[in-house]
Design a protein around this nucleic acid. Structure first.
Length: 375
DNA sequence: ATGTGC
């Protein structure tokens, strides 16, 4: 195996943006992997399991499945609805949504076939949101900063939008586990058969995750009796050939939105605005990427202890911006409290200051579905 | 993150 210099390590964040030391160490460790060219942390960088979340990694000749992680294909999808912004009926809508956690009662195979997505062993989970930071959320347009860019999205004035954050559920997990069982955290020579096999499975999970977001949106809309129109769907966990076309170079994104796929949504927490931004697609030194959200500030295991003296569960299902949160898992309700996340305006501010994107609009959470399952 | 691990 060839020797090489350590990869470039860069963090896109102003000095006042909080970044946990452990996340920086994890980023630096990934930079020492064979074939690594660059490791770029976004302002939402935070520690993950071994490697950090909120980062892009460029490698040459090798692919590292653990840098993509278990939720292959995870991303954000936005739909416009025909629900008017004016008549918010939060409690009625919350009742109507019912339970979206169970298996969809429609024909999953037909739904996948319509989208030319291959069936898998995990199709019983298609249309389910999952746990962690995943959600489906009705949002109101808060402010339009760039009317020209906003107009390209085709969202009718005065309509609510639906943002879905979910991934490939057990499918991506199974693909990563199968890889780790054979190769641990070692990468794969990108020209070899093992890499081809991983990439084939990975690409399938990316397509399946996109179909999953579409079915989540459909279940949500069907429950409310509203119509949807697709606006965008952007994946933030994947490995792709490097956008500059450099041979044998691979771009891994782990919790990093692409700057190469047009306008993206960077969600805040339930209690803050989300940002619609227009990326500069040319920024190789930033790993052709943006932050994918606010990023955790506190570890999941620490949040409840910090907040249970301040908030009862009933306090957390209403947010500072007047939104309603459906989350019947009390542990998750605390783990996902807005205080557990960094300030989204600071995160987006860092991206804008670095010249990586401009703000198109802000969105205000109205009704967030997390889960109706109890842990 | 996970049809979730001992």
């Amino acid at each position: 195996m060839e020797t090489q210099d350590k990869a470039t390590v860069r963090i896109v964040a102003s000095p006042k943006t909080w970044i946990e030391g452990e996340a920086v160490q994890q980023l630096e460790r990934t930079a020492t992997l064979p074939g690594m060219i660059a490791a770029v942390g976004m302002p939402d960088l935070h520690p993950g399991k071994g490697s950090p979340i909120g980062a892009a990694f460029v490698s040459e000749g090798r692919i590292y499945p653990h840098l993509v992680g278990n939720d292959i294909g995870c991303g954000m999808a936005l739909w416009s609805t025909d629900l008017p912004q004016r008549k918010l009926k939060l409690e009625r809508w919350a009742d109507r949504l019912g339970d979206l956690d169970g298996r969809w009662d429609g024909d999953v195979e037909a739904f996948l076939a319509e989208r030319t997505v291959a069936p898998t062993d995990h199709d019983a989970s298609l249309g389910t949101i999952g746990g962690g930071n995943h959600f489906a959320e009705l949002q109101q347009v808060d402010a339009i900063e760039d009317a020209e860019a906003w107009a390209t999205l085709g969202i009718a004035a005065d309509s609510l939008v639906l943002l879905v954050h979910s991934g490939s559920r057990g499918l991506g997990e199974a693909i990563l586990r199968a890889h780790v069982d054979r190769f641990a955290a070692a990468g794969l020579g990108s020209a070899g058969e093992d890499a081809r096999e991983y990439l084939r499975a990975h690409d399938g999970a990316v397509a399946w995750a996109q179909a999953n977001r579409a079915l989540i949106a459909r279940r949500f809309a069907d429950a409310l009796g509203v119509e949807l129109a697709p606006v965008l769907d952007v994946c933030h966990n994947a490995v792709v050939p490097c956008p500059d076309g450099a041979p044998q170079r691979w771009l891994h994104r782990k919790g990093a939105a692409p700057s190469t796929a047009g306008i993206v949504v960077i969600p805040g927490s339930r209690g803050t605005l989300s940002y619609v931004v227009k990326p500069d697609p040319s920024r190789a030194e930033a790993g052709w990427s943006l932050a994918h959200g606010a990023g955790r500030k506190w570890r999941r295991s620490d949040v409840k202890e910090r907040l249970q003296g301040r908030y009862r569960p009933d306090d957390l299902v209403r947010t500072a911006l007047g939104g309603r949160v459906i989350c019947e898992d009390r542990e998750l309700l605390y783990e996902e409290a807005p205080e557990a996340y960094k300030k989204i305006d600071a995160v987006v501010g860092d991206l804008v200051a670095a010249g990586l994107c401009t703000v198109v609009a802000t969105l205000r959470p109205v009704l967030t579905y997390k889960t109706r399952s109890r842990r």
